[in-house]
Nucleic acid binder design. Structure first.
Length: 279
DNA sequence: GACCAGGGCGGCC
DNA sequence: GGCCGCCATGGT
């Protein structure tokens, strides 16, 4: 996608493949906020950006030193028009979902942040997930100007089950403590080098991470697109548009991946955002 | 007051 | 291996 850099701003002209509402509200990230003036603010790891609309362009505004972090974060080098065309041409029933969420981009987030966030997401709703994550950042993250960074693994390792219960994790609190303990022995850089299946096997061995949460981590944190997180919403989509006889989530996942291949992750996000918007 | 939310886990077969 | 009940919490 075409973009320009002007000091501490990234300027985006093609609004048909960049829409902050779609990008942030499609369920892939939790630390974002719509400000009173209509701008969106997002925090990733220890960095913050504000997205401002200026007539027919969007501006990503951040610290000068973070410009290239956010170019990568927003996946600006990827041509989403091409991806959307491939999806619509092959699977015409995706038309409505892609028209609805035309400006989605899959963010390249911090792996640690995605792991912790999606352990919290299990059998939970987005509002509560956001509140829990904010509590954790506010009480365990480093303050940086006017916001709190996501805690490092060392900061997380200092927290106990009582803390996470106060954060609203409920029965996931003990899982979280255990997962953090396990994570201290895992090189997240090494995780990036693994194949999708090898990385999935490793992730699923962690406490609180199963088939669905591991797919989210692979998609949002490890840039793997040959995965298809099947949650309750994708389950509904599958019953209605594919096959209402099949209910086993593992089977649904395999069928969807064999259908969409390396475009699975993209198809999943358009379908999830579209279906969830109907409520 | 049951049902649901970006499910995972342990027990049972 | 697959199936099933349970699990905190807050909102409809």
């Amino acid at each position: 996608m075409k973009y320009a850099i002007n000091k501490n701003k990234i300027i985006i002209h093609s609004c048909d493949e960049f829409n902050p509402k779609h990008i942030f509200e499609c369920g892939q990230i939790f630390r974002y906020q719509k400000l009173e003036n209509g701008d969106y603010q997002v925090i990733s790891s220890d960095k913050k950006a504000v997205i401002h609309q200026n007539n027919t362009t969007y501006e990503i505004i951040c610290d000068l030193k973070d410009i290239y972090y956010f170019i990568n974060f927003f996946d600006l080098e990827t041509n989403y028009t091409k991806i959307k065309n491939q999806l619509i041409n092959q699977y015409t029933f995706l038309d409505k979902a892609i028209t609805f969420g035309y400006g989605i981009r899959i963010l390249k987030q911090s792996v640690l942040e995605v792991i912790i966030s999606f352990i919290i997401s299990a059998n939970n709703n987005i509002k509560r997930i956001q509140a829990s994550i904010e509590y954790i950042c506010l009480n365990a993250g480093t303050k940086n100007q006017d916001f709190y960074a996501f805690p490092t693994i060392n900061q997380l390792s200092m927290l106990d089950e009582t803390f996470f219960k106060k954060a609203g994790l409920g029965y996931r609190a003990s899982q979280m403590v255990q997962a953090i303990k396990q994570l201290q022995d895992i090189d997240l850089q090494y995780l990036q080098t693994l194949t999708t299946q090898k990385a999935k096997d490793l992730l699923i061995s962690l406490s609180g991470i199963g088939p669905k949460v591991s797919d989210c981590i692979l998609l949002f944190g490890l840039n793997k697109k040959d995965v298809f997180p099947v949650d309750t919403w994708i389950n509904k989509v599958y019953q209605i548009h594919f096959n209402n006889q099949i209910t086993n989530r593992q089977t649904i996942r395999e069928n969807l991946i064999s259908t969409f291949g390396t475009l699975s992750g993209f198809a999943q996000q358009y379908l999830f955002y579209w279906k969830r918007s109907e409520k």
